[in-house]
């Protein structure tokens, strides 16, 4: 597959899209880990929801 004289523009477009999407996925995964870790810490320190259920329920 030849991309012609403007190959750098095409490759940069696809690489930029891949990079932004990877950053977005990474940010969401790290945020999830961060929130579940904080919930676990609160759970361990005995802070529970008003319903009496664990803070980690259904997460």
């Amino acid at each position: 597959m030849s991309l012609g004289p403007y190959a750098s523009f095409i490759v940069t477009s696809y690489a930029a899209a891949a990079l932004v999407i990877v950053i977005l996925i990474g940010w969401i995964v790290l945020d999830y880990r961060n929130q579940t870790r904080r919930l676990r810490e609160l759970d361990r320190s005995g802070v529970t929801r008003r319903s009496g259920r664990s803070a980690m329920d259904a997460s």
Binding site: D31, Y32, Q35, T36, L42, V47, T48, R49
Partner: peptide, 23 residues
């Protein structure tokens, strides 16, 4: 997919916030 995952994170963030306020 990303939206549902981010919504889950936001719900957990609010749960953390309310528990921290309770604490």
């Amino acid at each position: 997919t990303l939206h549902l995952a981010a919504m889950r994170n936001e719900i957990l963030r609010r749960r953390v916030r309310s528990l921290q306020m309770m604490q």
